[in-house]
Amino acid sequence: MVSSISLSIDSDLDKVSLLARAVRALCEDFLSPDDQDAVELSLVEAINNVIKHGYQGKPGKDVQVAVGLQSDQVVIDIIDHASPMEPQLLEQPAADPFSFDETELADIPESGMGLALIRMNMDEVQYLSSETENRLRMVKRIERPLP
């Protein structure tokens, strides 16, 4: 079983939830509710990053999402045409933003959590940048592959 579908929105934060709910629904038959949560959160964080940082909040730019449903994994590509993200952001993750000291109010993070959440929630994360596009590939393995 291999099937795939492409969806797209323009760079408007109000539209991210539509896409997230659509992708979650696609994963319903393959992933546990916990893994659906993981995929939905990662997708939202990735698209928010594209809109806020890649396109710097400008409207009218395109964000494409390709979802591949394979027998043993769900592969989600987020494709944009913004300036590429610095690759070291993914390759050499900064210190774990969640290892803060909860007794020090000032240490508790308010931002910079998106990429860390994606890495924690997905099994594989890859960033490919070419002259024509940037592609963030996120893979979630299916725990009990369907017969």
Binding site: S17, E110, M113
Partner: peptide
Amino acid sequence: DFIDSSGLGALVSCLK
């Protein structure tokens, strides 16, 4: 039923 890191950041900002 859903909060992302921006929402969580807003909660932390309120706490501060």
